[in-house]
């Protein structure tokens, strides 16, 4: 995936030269973190631990792949954490309602998955259209929908927790906990979303337009790029990515509440920026985002595996590593 950036080249040398070495810093940060982790605790490098962390990173990672499109196009989406909580709550309620109708659990789950994908698409489109047709700043629109989705899930849950019907839960649970060839399903889905995202961003006309809008909207407009439509589509992609993350999240705990997905938006944005995408838009890579999301999960894991750092300082260490990772990047790329 790291080389999806490289253009096909006739010789090995030209191929090497075309790899953007300066933007490999996030990968170096991740390797550094893995070395620290393996020094701190012998169990760190066990497959179980590595797969646990990779599986956890799938939620934020998949959301951040969508976020990469939004941010490269010069937008921002603050609503994704609340949207995830709302979609999870709605999905569980729909499946519970269907469960009362004597349907097969598998049918119910497929209907739930279909519903949540459509709902994610619509939620993303609502954000996008309010921004482009309504001509309101993305920051304000998504700050608004952040509050709206969060209240809606609290309302649906009656202030408590929405829990999935037990029979469906048993059938659905393996989607998070099961694995194929020893790799958990969420990791496969994360990889698939990232590869499709990378192809769309780096290999299609749509991807070029997204970058063009982010670097200079007016020039893009004069080049007859349909700026509004492309920008709306980036939010639709974001919404669908949130829905995919929710499909993997619901089978884990089988519940959603007002505290589901709190601050996921900031983690997703951090993953995108650590991955080398410019917050002001115009340039970025999907693979960097993937590395950024995995790195964020590993920071938490490494801190949990050691008593060397007081638990009161977890947040401070996380903050330092995030700033450090982005600082190295800016220094290297000489922007």
């Amino acid at each position: 995936m790291a080389r999806s950036e490289a253009a096909p080249a006739p010789t090995w040398r030209r191929h090497m030269r075309s790899i953007p070495w300066q933007s490999l810093t996030p990968l170096l940060g991740l390797v550094f973190l893995l070395i620290i982790g393996s020094l701190l605790h012998p169990a760190f490098l066990t497959p179980t631990n590595l797969l646990n962390v990779l599986t956890r990173s799938a939620f934020i990672g998949i959301i951040a792949v969508g976020g990469t499109f939004v941010i490269i196009a010069g937008g921002i989406d603050l609503s994704v954490g609340s949207m995830a909580a709302f979609l999870a709550g709605a999905m569980i309620l729909v499946m519970n309602a269907l469960a009362r109708n004597d349907l097969e659990p598998l049918t119910i789950i497929l209907l739930g998955v279909g519903m949540v994908l459509v709902a994610g698409l619509l939620a993303g489109a609502a954000n996008g259209l309010a921004i482009t047709r309504g001509r309101i700043e993305a920051f304000i629109v998504t700050l608004g929908t952040l509050g709206i989705f969060r209240s809606l899930v609290t309302y649906l849950a009656d202030g408590g927790t929405i829990s999935l019907d037990f029979a469906i839960r048993g059938v659905y649970r393996p989607v998070y906990f099961g694995s194929f060839l020893g790799i958990p399903y969420p990791v496969w889905v994360f990889a698939a979303v990232a590869i499709i995202g990378a192809i769309v961003l780096h290999r299609t006309r749509f991807g070029r337009y997204v970058r063009a809008i982010g670097s200079n909207q007016e020039v893009a407009r004069y080049a007859s790029v349909r700026v509004e439509r492309i920008r709306t589509l980036t939010f639709v992609i974001q919404g669908v990515c949130v829905a995919i993350a929710v499909i993997l999240y619901v089978p884990r705990l089988g519940s959603a509440s007002g505290s589901t997905g709190i601050l996921w938006e900031l983690e997703a944005i951090a993953a995108v920026i650590i991955g080398g995408t410019a917050l002001k838009g115009g340039s970025g890579h999907i693979w960097g985002t993937v590395v950024g999301a995995i790195m964020l999960s590993f920071i938490g894991n490494v801190l949990n595996l050691t008593t060397a750092i007081s638990e009161y300082l977890n947040g401070a260490v996380q903050g330092l590593i995030i700033i450090g990772a982005v600082f190295l990047q800016r220094g290297r790329s000489g922007r």
Binding site: T154, A157, D158, G159, G160, T161, S257, G258, S259
Partner: peptide
């Protein structure tokens, strides 16, 4: 406000 389980109660 009912932001988590206990306050919901």
């Amino acid at each position: 406000a009912a932001t988590h389980g206990w306050t919901g109660g």
